[in-house]
Amino acid sequence: RRPMNAFMVWAKDERKRLAQQNPDLHNAELSKMLGKSWKALTLAEKRPFVEEAERLRVQHMQDHPNYK
Rank of each mutant, 00 (worst) to 15 (best):
N66R: 13
P3E: 15
R2T: 12
H60A: 14
R17V: 06
R2D: 13
K46D: 00
N66E: 14
A28C: 04
K39T: 03
H26P: 15
P48D: 02
P65D: 09
K12T: 10
H64R: 14
A19P: 02
V50W: 07
F7K: 03
E54F: 04
S37G: 07
E29G: 09
G35R: 15
L56G: 07
W38F: 04
L34R: 02
K36Q: 14
D24M: 10
R1Y: 02
H60L: 09
W38S: 02
E14Q: 00
V9Q: 06
D63R: 07
M33C: 04
E14I: 02
L30N: 05
M4P: 06
L30Q: 04
P3M: 13
H64D: 14
A19D: 03
Q62W: 06
L43P: 15
E54N: 12
N66D: 14
E54R: 07
A44W: 06
A6L: 01
D13F: 04
R15E: 05
A28L: 08
P23N: 01
H26G: 14
R15D: 00
A28M: 09
A40Y: 04
E14R: 01
K12A: 11
V58Y: 12
K12Y: 06
S31E: 15
A44H: 10
D13C: 03
K16Y: 07
K36R: 11
E29S: 04
V58R: 10
N5H: 03
D63A: 10
K46N: 00
V50M: 09
G35M: 12
K68S: 07
F49H: 07
R1V: 12
Q20S: 15
S31C: 08
F49R: 02
P65C: 10
F7R: 05
E29T: 04
L18R: 02
R47F: 02
R15V: 05
Q62A: 10
A40W: 05
R57Y: 07
E54C: 08
R17H: 06
V58T: 12
E51S: 15
K32W: 12
L43F: 15
H64V: 14
P48I: 00
S37Q: 14
R2P: 08
D63F: 07
D24I: 06
E14L: 01
E54K: 06
K36E: 10
E45K: 07
D13S: 09
N22K: 12
Q59L: 12
M61E: 15
F49C: 02
F7D: 09
L25H: 05
N22G: 04
Q62F: 09
D13G: 09
K36W: 05
V50P: 00
L25C: 11
H60Y: 15
A19W: 09
Q20I: 12
N5C: 07
L43G: 06
A6M: 01
K39V: 02
R15S: 07
A53T: 03
P48Y: 00
D13T: 09
A40I: 07
P65F: 11
W38V: 02
E52T: 07
K16C: 07
W38G: 03
Q21A: 14
Q59E: 06
F49M: 01
N5K: 04
E52I: 03
R2V: 07
R55V: 06
V50G: 03
K32C: 04
M33L: 07
N66P: 09
N27I: 04
A6H: 04
H64N: 13
H60I: 09
L34G: 00
Y67G: 13
N66C: 12
K36D: 10
M33Q: 09
A19C: 05
N5I: 02
G35L: 11
E29C: 02
Q62M: 09
R2Y: 10
E52Y: 06
D24T: 13
E29M: 07
N22A: 04
H60N: 11
R2G: 10
N27S: 12
A19N: 05
K12H: 07
M4L: 13
Q21N: 07
R2I: 11
R1K: 15
M33S: 06
P48R: 05
E14V: 01
K32N: 11
R55T: 08
P48A: 02
K68N: 12
H26I: 14
M8V: 09
P23T: 08
L43T: 12
S31Q: 09
P48H: 14
M33I: 13
R2Q: 03
K32V: 11
D24L: 08
P65I: 11
P48W: 05
Q62D: 15
F49V: 02
L30F: 03
V50Y: 15
A40R: 10
M8T: 14
P3S: 12
